[in-house]
Amino acid sequence: LKELEYTPAPAFSTDEDKTPFEDVVRYNNFYEFGTAKDDPARYAHEMSVDPWSVQVDGECDRPGTYALEDLLKPHALEERVYRLRCVEAWSMVIPWIGVPLADMLKRFEPNSRAKYVYFETLHDPDQMRGQRSLFSTVDWPYREGLRMDEAMNELSFFTVGLYGKTLPNQNGAPFRLVVPWKYGFKSIKSIVRIRFQEEQPATTWEMIAPQEYGFYANVNPEVDHPRWSQKRERRLPSGLLSPNWVETQKFNGYGEQVAHLYKGMDLRQNY
């Protein structure tokens, strides 16, 4: 992992206790490398992330294939300490390093027909053993998407590092999204494709179980997942003798910045 140069962005950072580095890098959901929490830490080294390029297409004026370092060159990196809330009712606090997603997306000059932006994770069974599994119900590649105004929100983060260094592979190297007011699965990892489009894209979890996972996936303690309550979360690391329960906040506590995006929408319908 390479050291990164960055400036802290306190206006975008929580001062809650951070989840230690070793927990952030050993407890991951990254099904491309297996479904157990420790599979990614064990197998993600089988993926090569250098060099890395991204294909940009769809409703924008500057489509093309971009090398990651060329994309990053004009930007100054900043550090934001965000809460990450998984739909499985656990959460972490992680110091991410990256650039505002809006700054990055604007460079591709999306046109007026760009209502949504779609992202795709690398699909390469040779490097990703989870994609070789015969019994997986995931239709690879992993897909995610945001409405354009969500993507352009100041909180959406194009992330290349954590704890001062480049991202470990299991955390989505070389770059991923971090959308802190949504459940963790929206924060797609190891991105190879960005597409601007007019229609709402189909997203992986919604495709697998539409009654359980919606397109919006905003953190919301009032709307339970059918298999577990969303009222509280276990802030990691949690102990057996001192279970670290935290009350879940609507929009993961980022309502001030994002609640206006959903004005007039029924969040029970659009979960």
Partner: peptide, 15 residues
């Protein structure tokens, strides 16, 4: 594993 602290950051779930 419990005694040695090897249940990971979410030991209740693991257990």
């Amino acid at each position: 594993r419990m005694a040695a602290g090897l249940l990971g950051p979410d030991p209740g779930q693991e257990l």
